[in-house]
């Protein structure tokens, strides 16, 4: 039942790990470190927005949230250790997502 892959797909696009049972396993300690970083970022976010800096608070909160989201995707969702194809697909969709939000919002602002 093994269907050979078309030759034009480069080797590194396909995750070979599953084929020879060498899947990357995240260590407990690395996951715990990511959680500590996420909690620290939450603390920073709560503190910074407490200063009532107006638009800067919004920018700071959104930047911190983006860093948190990036770490969750990279480590908790294990994307760092996926195949190049998955990485490209996932990052591509997030870029499109961000562009849609930003461009639509700019369109509204400049009306």
């Amino acid at each position: 039942m093994d269907i050979p892959l078309p030759a034009f797909i480069p080797d590194n696009l396909i995750n070979k790990d599953h084929m020879n049972n060498e899947t990357h396993i995240s260590s407990y300690s690395s996951l715990a470190i990511v959680l500590i970083i996420l909690l620290l970022l939450t603390m920073i976010s709560v503190t910074v927005t407490g200063f009532h800096l107006g638009p800067f608070a919004v920018a700071a909160a959104l930047i911190i949230a983006s860093i948190k989201v990036a770490s969750v995707i990279t480590y908790f969702m294990h994307v760092k250790f996926e195949s190049l194809f998955m990485k490209l697909m996932i990052s591509g969709v997030f870029v499109i997502f961000a562009l849609i939000i930003i461009i639509t919002f700019i369109d509204y602002l400049l009306r």
């Binding site: 899947t23 715990a32 959680l35 939450t42 709560v46 908790f76």
Partner: peptide
């Protein structure tokens, strides 16, 4: 915002525990 922060801590921690459960099953 206190409840919001508390809920953030709950969700972030639960995200770690579920990621760890995958590690556990893989081991």
């Amino acid at each position: 915002s206190f409840i919001g922060t508390l809920n953030t801590v709950f969700l972030l921690t639960s995200s770690m525990t579920v990621a760890m459960s995958l590690t556990a099953i893989q081991k």
